[in-house]
Design a protein around this nucleic acid. Sequence first.
DNA 1: TTGTATGCGTTATCAA
DNA 2: TTGATAACGCATACAA
Lengths: 321, 321
Amino acid sequence: MGAKITDVAALAGVSIATVSHVINGSRPVRKETADRVQRAIRELNYTPNSSARSLKTGNKRMIGFLVPDISNLFFATMIDSIEREIAKKGYHLMVVNTCESGEKEQSVLQSLCTGIVDGVIIASSVGDSQELSDYLPKNFPVVFVDRRLKNNCADLVETVSYRAIYESVEYLLQKGHEKIGCIFGLPHLSTTQNRYDAYFRAVSDHGLSPDKALVRNLSIENSNPVPLCEELIENGCTALFFGNSRTCMQSLCVLNHYPDRYEVVTFLDSPEYRELFRGMHVIEQPTGTMGAMAGEQILKRIAHPDAPTREILLYSVFHEN
Amino acid sequence: MGAKITDVAALAGVSIATVSHVINGSRPVRKETADRVQRAIRELNYTPNSSARSLKTGNKRMIGFLVPDISNLFFATMIDSIEREIAKKGYHLMVVNTCESGEKEQSVLQSLCTGIVDGVIIASSVGDSQELSDYLPKNFPVVFVDRRLKNNCADLVETVSYRAIYESVEYLLQKGHEKIGCIFGLPHLSTTQNRYDAYFRAVSDHGLSPDKALVRNLSIENSNPVPLCEELIENGCTALFFGNSRTCMQSLCVLNHYPDRYEVVTFLDSPEYRELFRGMHVIEQPTGTMGAMAGEQILKRIAHPDAPTREILLYSVFHEN
DNA sequence: TTGTATGCGTTATCAA
DNA sequence: TTGATAACGCATACAA
């Protein structure tokens, strides 16, 4: 065990109260005294015991982030931005992979929210917020991010892509594509549903009747898009729409069998993918901003548990080329 | 704040000492009494305050994992296996992304190891363990995983791939390939160096002089393998060797421009990649086992800080086809 | 401007 | 087999 506050106080020749106040800036201290304390802290290489501090104040300076798929660069980007945001206020981020499983989400929530973290950010795999309520202590700080649950009544940071998708599909239609194949994500997610709706609307607004043969979804059992992509091509698509970066990346092997024969629009979930998608049209999602906003919001929620619930909406943008 | 131990004691009609001992199994309690306590715990939905417990016992039941690149499925696989392993003993995992930066690794270490976690597992981005020693309290429990540092003197879980690589290169040579192009990872890493050494040795053992024109590395500035892969093909390679799954996956777009013209060996870092690599030869790395062993070892190290240091070696396997 | 003393919720020692 | 009580290291109300 390292030095404690009493050691610092002794070395600086002051009381522990003064040391505490110097560290926390919680009351005025004469500059000269404060300097002496700071010197003692450095000399002893003192760091406050976080358990003692938590016990006293009731806050752990730790945020939990429940991620459905930690290996998806989309979420990796979000992890980084959340971490950066809350670090500004001295908070740490605890990331837990829920593997797109509602049950894992529930059990993780149960163990995190009873003493490990001060609040949680959730990119949830469940459909309805009621599935989580038994595992969240009453009034526990929660921010949902990316995916919107049914019956949501907590803070939410969401990206709206309707317009960007509509524009992109319209763009393809105007270039003469009549068979636009789509591969979307897991069908029960709000993001997937919204993306499908926008596509559907754009197609029907242009007088085409949507065709089941052109639309595919990933599923938990089968997350490999390659065979789906092959089916779409066999069904005669001349343009392809990918609902997320990873799906597009995994499908590159198929696309490159027939280079230049397809026009592609893909979601760009993370700037890091841009290189890979040269020559494709992209719908750029503000992933980093979403993370930062979620980080900011969870800290606000912790500070003001009774403030009114907020829904923060960001927007995707379509870039041709 | 929820129920505390005193509430449980009152409801069960016993002292807090008895409640504590029932929870921790730290001394015999009459079955009938224990049952009453358990019932009270359930009734009040009581969970021990982890800060108070940590303050008293000095242990946080939390392990830190420093990951160089959280978006790499290799590490995602390891995260899952570590988490699963330590959860068996009631520990949580705190994952922090160090972005292949030694400096971030140092600063994260500094903040984690002074009160947040009981021990750390590190897949390190630095070259020499001395670069970390200033940021690790003396005798702090550490397990290195995957990458071996110079002057290592801590526990280590490492995969040895020498034989598997040698066999794979020999296999390609025996099939008549004389120009085997390679793309390896970051050049300062032990894993990269070991892989290069094995390749080099296999090639020279077969009477060929290794050719700089056939070997490429990723770098922090340029982690996109696509142009490298194109160079190798222009240089006349008929077979390609990929030092990790992601590099191979990102190169699929190039490979598929010329399907069937190349024979490919790639590391298979995670079983989840297998589908994507149909038709390629793979070197299978026991990634999940590495994570589990690292998790097991950090708990052993925490329990026995003065036990002799261990180096745990696992082995990759070459599978043709 | 600074110091004293109490208590946060546990675990564990000592006593019964 | 069980209970009373003293720490653990800190923040803070109250005193000076």
